[in-house]
Design a protein around this nucleic acid. Structure first.
Length: 486
RNA sequence: CGGGGUGUAGCGCAGUUUGGUAGCGCACUCGCUUUGGGAGCGAGGGGCCGCAGGUUCAAAUCCUGUCACCCCGACCA
């Protein structure tokens, strides 16, 4: 593998439609043609930069949904659904919110064959429309906290779409909650941040994260505090994997989300919102992909192990043995698949599984079977070892655990190697050529953030010296992470 | 909007300088041989050369105009 090629995985992937749909034949291995291109930026005329995800790509999203949804519900939130169309006037009720989103709104002016009296926007996010309903649903302090989540699509008319990272339409989960006190709201925003997002990204996606808060400049439009999870991709750039906001009483005020307290006084609620999106698929690929394709963390992988009939022999013993192995794996709770398509050349099937990132492959053929063996191929660490048929289930289970750990370790090591501690803006700007820089926030505050932005460098997040998550950017002794982003 | 570039088969491209029958690779179809790491050979199908006008016996190629798209910057889960 040449270093330049390793770096081209993310770049190729990130290139807009033309590059994604049209990889050069003899250039980078076909892996993103076969795997990543399973999602495409849709070419539907003037509707630019929306996304089409083919089944193999969507299976990843379904796994992410399942894992994230379970964690969200564990915090007590419930799923609900709200309208796709939002009256334009709703957005105008919160000044910063509308200012932040105006440039990227898709607005419907005509419907039912005539011009609408008031235009409606296609939701870019649902704080406003959900706020409208929360106001009706919170009468008493007994109604709080109100913990809602919805799985939906949203539309932001982006100037520069990039597959998975910034598409004009994307799928996500957006949570919206209302609380009686600021303390409750903050605690809940942080619960989501750590127990849902950090836990999922680190332990399921095997992607290490730095958890912190955004600067005022990078904050969500209308929020009083934005928390973020930042991960380093294979090329040293940073990607925001998820976010959780404290909205203070801004939206409560705009939408009259108030309630009668135990003391009998009318009080404004404190709200939060939080989300993760299909961007995580991009992050997964850019963080773990290698020259041979995708490497899926076993806990996420829709197919964890594939039992492959290498070659049929005349007695069909091989097929029978493979089936038995596959069933044994399923019985042991492994998401196993059986590939007995002996009419397709072995090489093609093996490489196909590799491209898709299936963590473990078990090759069963007449030669090995005669000795009571199969071949265990570990995609993540990249080795091949003969194992006994009897020990196969245990060996697969071990390989899955090892793979999960190895992916995380590799990503963490890369981040550590490419993160520099510096104490000036100039050194910080230099360091982000190859990775991240940690610099005292005091050095950056004020004009520093703008100076860096002029050089394409952003402050990804602020953390306390001990790695803790600060409540706001005014705490003393904070550390800023600098990086390039997509 | 500022700075670069590109439009030729489903995709990637050559051909344009110097005008002369529309090409290559991948993909697709059929046949035979293969099948323990992306198969080989043979035979096929597929084109308003972005669009409009002009020059010429003759235009993918030269001239004029026009449209679209892409890359870098401003936006962002």
């Amino acid at each position: 593998m040449r270093a330049s090629e390793a770096l081209r995985i993310p770049y190729g992937l990130m290139s807009p439609r033309a590059a994604v749909l049209t990889p050069r034949a003899d250039d980078f291995p076909r892996w993103y043609q076969d795997v990543v291109a399973k999602a495409e930026l849709a070419d539907n005329g003037p509707v630019r930069g929306t996304m089409v995800i083919r089944p193999t790509g969507y299976a990843l999203w379904e796994r992410m949904q399942a894992e994230v949804d379970a964690r969200i519900k564990a915090t007590g939130a419930q799923n609900a659904y709200f309208p796709l169309f939002i009256p334009e006037s709703y957005l105008h009720r919160e000044a910063e919110h509308v200012e932040g989103f105006s440039p990227e709104l898709a607005v419907v002016t005509h419907a039912g064959g005539k011009q609408l009296e008031e235009p409606v926007v296609v939701r870019p996010t649902s704080e406003t429309v959900i706020g409208e309903f929360m106001a009706k649903w919170t009468q008493s302090y007994r109604d709080l906290p109100l913990l809602l989540n919805q799985w939906s699509n949203v539309v932001r008319w982006e100037l520069r779409p990039r597959i998975f990272l910034r598409t004009s339409e994307f799928l996500w989960q957006e949570g919206h909650t209302a609380h009686a006190t600021e303390v409750d709201a903050r605690a809940y925003a942080r619960t989501i941040l750590h127990e849902v997002y950090e836990d999922f990204v680190a332990n399921v996606l095997a992607i290490p994260v730095v958890v912190g808060c955004k600067t005022k400049q990078e904050r969500f439009a209308g929020a009083t505090n934005t928390y973020t999870l930042e991960s380093m991709m294979g090329d040293g750039k940073a990607l925001q994997m998820g976010t959780s906001h404290e909205l203070g009483q801004n939206f409560a005020r705009a939408f009259q989300i108030d309630y009668l307290s135990a003391a009998g006084t009318q009080e404004l609620a404190w709200t939060t919102s939080w989300g993760v999106s299909t961007r995580m698929i991009g992050g997964l690929i850019m963080c773990h992909g290698d020259d041979n394709g995708l490497r899926l963390p076993p806990r996420l992988a829709p197919t964890q192990a594939i039992v492959m009939v290498v070659k049929d022999d005349e007695s069909a013993e091989v097929v029978a043995a493979a089936r038995k192995l596959h069933e044994a794996l399923q019985g042991a709770g492994v998401r196993s698949a059986l590939d007995e398509r002996v009419d397709i050349p072995f090489g093609r099937r093996a490489i196909d599984a590799e491209l898709k990132g299936v963590p473990v492959r078990l090759e069963v053929g007449p030669r090995d079977l005669a000795e009571g063996n199969a071949v265990l191929v570990r995609r993540i660490v990249g080795d091949k070892t003969p194992i006994t048929i009897e020990g196969a289930v245990a060996a697969v289970a071990n390989a899955l655990e090892d793979g999960q750990r190895a992916l995380y370790e590799q990503a963490l090591q890369r981040r550590q190697q490419h993160t520099a501690d510096v104490d000036s803006l100039a050194d910080g700007a230099d360091a982000v050529a190859t990775g991240w820089a940690r610099v005292p926030w005091a050095v950056v505050r004020g004009d520093g953030e703008l100076e860096l932005a002029a050089q394409g460098v952003t402050v990804r997040c602020l953390v306390r010296e001990d790695g803790g998550v600060p409540d706001n950017e005014d705490e003393p002794e904070l550390v800023a992470y600098l990086a390039r982003a997509y």
